[in-house]
Amino acid sequence: MLEATLNLKLLEMCSKCGACFSICPSCMHIPGYDPRAVINDILDGNYEKWLTSRHIWQCLECHHCLEICYQHYGFENAMAALRTIAAKRGIHPTQLKRGWEMFVKTSRLGEPALPARKKLGLPEPKASGADEFKKLLSLLKEKREKKKK
């Protein structure tokens, strides 16, 4: 499953480097957060145990690892791939799911604060594209179901 989304050849190089480890904020400030261990497990085919780990969600997606990486790859890709699999299995922080549900339902992560806007003298907010967005999501769903058949 991971092979489909990750370039294991590049990750093999990552396992011998670790430049990102010295710049990643989570590595510096969260005890036990060590993507080098994750990468080695992915390469050994033992990634399952990481799907239930808090650590894969503690990647802040700040892209520091990507920028310092001489392959412009970075372990963020490994963490993102694991998060995707975990989320598909329903293993994820509860707030994440709440945010996703709001997004799907309203096309936004919060509606404009109307009373505060009025007080500040801000213009009426522009119309959102919620209807069109919902139509697109259902088209995407249809397309996926067709593919399955």
């Binding site: 998060r83 994820h92 994440l96 945010g99 096309s107 936004r108 522009k126 594209g129 069109e132 967005f133």
Partner: peptide, 28 residues
Amino acid sequence: DIDGFTCCPEKSLVNNIDHAAFVLTAAR
């Protein structure tokens, strides 16, 4: 100001759950 924008969408919430929906929403 233009009509029709939705959430960009937010990466950690949307991309982790459904990459295709993330791309499609941003592309729109």
